[in-house]
């Protein structure tokens, strides 16, 4: 469906992301909103925005692996942990600045992710899920028990905030801009990836691996590559998390976190870049909204005690509702809305 008056004269125009002035302005407005947000929002909400930003990077990573390449992973929590701990160890034990610790965390996580991705050549679907679950358990156990390196169950504290000379990113607002600069780079990179050779091969592996192999895609290499790229994203998210909270402990990286990220990309939309963003926003905001609702409601109902159970329950219900009514997630809903208004009011 194309609006009238939109003419494409070159393949370059045809292959662009945004075809109309409206679509371009929507992006400019979004970018402007992201820049202006800390000026209008309170410190509390900037903090939440930071968590959303970190979740976006992590969800993009998981979506590259699970949504685009079709390799289901429940090791996300552990890979976040690998990134966070690597970054903390590089910064504290080796005294490296954040600017080296961040890519270092990404690379180490990519390496670990590739190793745990090796079974994917033989295992598919549920069997791969179990293999990645094994990875999750192994990494979690290692983090908890390698006390000399990770501090065991005590975790690590005093992780330094990023700094350039005298300028430190210790406040929420400054960290906000740092996080969202990386979110922007991560989003652009992922979007571009899937309109070029390697990304297309990832999707081909998801849709029909046998045909992809007969067409010259080296399955093993591309599956491992998908694990590596995905884990790099997750490692960067973990590193941002560590330097934001300045302390980490093993309970931040449990299998529960893995499930939460899977929920994010399912609700947001598997195999779409925008879906990772929608999902991360949704899943981070949901408990916040629930908490704010429980405040006034608790005056009438004994709801505070059951808040945690309520939260998990509502997560579960939301996922089921999405699977039934919109399996393609929030990204699809957004596309439907755009399509509706694209030809509005003459949508015939």
């Amino acid at each position: 469906m194309i609006e009238c008056g939109v003419f494409k004269r070159t393949y370059e125009e045809d292959m662009a992301f945004r075809h109309t002035a409206l679509a371009r302005w929507r992006i400019y407005l979004l970018l402007l909103a992201v820049v202006v947000f800390p000026f209008v929002a309170s410190e509390y909400y900037v903090g939440i925005a930071n968590l959303i930003g970190i979740a976006i990077i992590g969800a993009l990573g998981l979506n590259i692996l699970t949504g685009f390449t079709g390799q289901i992973s429940v090791g996300q929590g552990a890979f976040l942990g690998v990134g966070a701990y690597t970054s903390a160890i590089l910064a504290i034990r080796l005294g490296l600045p954040f600017w080296l610790a961040l890519p270092g965390a990404g690379l180490v996580t990519a390496l670990v992710g590739s190793v745990f991705g090796i079974p994917s050549l033989r295992l598919k679907g549920l069997y791969l899920v179990i293999a990645t679950l094994a990875g999750q358990v192994i990494i979690e156990w290692t983090i908890g028990h390698w006390v000399d390196l990770t501090g065991g169950s005590q975790g690590m504290t005093n992780i330094p905030s990023p700094a350039i000379g005298p300028l430190t990113f210790a406040s929420r607002t400054s960290y906000y801009y740092l996080t969202y600069a990386i979110v922007l780079a991560a989003t652009v990179f992922a979007s571009n990836l899937f309109r070029s050779k390697v990304g297309r091969a990832f999707v081909a592996v998801r849709d029909r691996d046998i045909a992809a192999e007969a067409m010259g895609v080296h399955l093993f290499r591309y599956k491992i590559l998908a694990f590596a790229v995905s884990s790099f994203y997750v490692g960067v998210a973990g590193s941002l998390w560590a330097h934001y909270l300045n302390m980490i402990s093993p309970e931040h990286f449990t299998v529960g976190v893995s499930i939460e990220y899977l929920a994010m990309i399912i609700i947001g939309g598997l195999g779409t870049v925008s879906g990772s963003i929608f999902g991360a926003i949704f899943m981070t905001l949901l408990p916040v909204i629930l908490r704010e609702l429980t405040g006034p409601l608790s005056a009438m109902l004994p709801i505070t005690q059951v808040f945690n159970a309520l939260r998990e329950g509502i997560f579960g219900i939301v996922i089921i509702v999405f699977l039934i009514y919109e399996p393609h997630g929030l990204a699809k809903i957004w596309r439907n809305i755009k399509d509706y208004f694209r030809l509005w009011p003459f949508s015939y």
Partner: peptide, 25 residues
Amino acid sequence: LGRHVHLQSSLLIGGIYFGFAQKEE
């Protein structure tokens, strides 16, 4: 994807897109 074997762009070049990858596409 049928042209996979003829394309050159690596992961990084594809992710940056503008420049070589775009020309190739």
